[in-house]
């Protein structure tokens, strides 16, 4: 019974943890791409936002 509950809790923990990890990686990727990557086209398009959001811009 105890093992069952533990297994269940573990599965639930993993079921929550992996999607959270996925979201964190995706979120950091979006923020880095829009706010930090210095490629000229991205920098120019996002210039005003980077300043207004307080990111280091150039």
């Amino acid at each position: 019974m105890t093992t069952l509950t533990q297994n269940h809790a573990q599965t639930r923990g993993t079921a929550r943890f992996l999607p959270a990890l996925f979201a964190v990686i995706l979120g950091l990727g979006v923020i880095a791409l829009t706010g930090h990557v210095q490629a000229a086209a991205l920098h120019d398009a996002a210039h005003d936002v980077r300043h207004a959001t307080g990111f280091p811009c150039h």
Partner: peptide, 14 residues
Amino acid sequence: TMLIYTGYALLMIA
């Protein structure tokens, strides 16, 4: 701005 805040939202909701 919408993209950046979607990135923030992904982190917060995780």
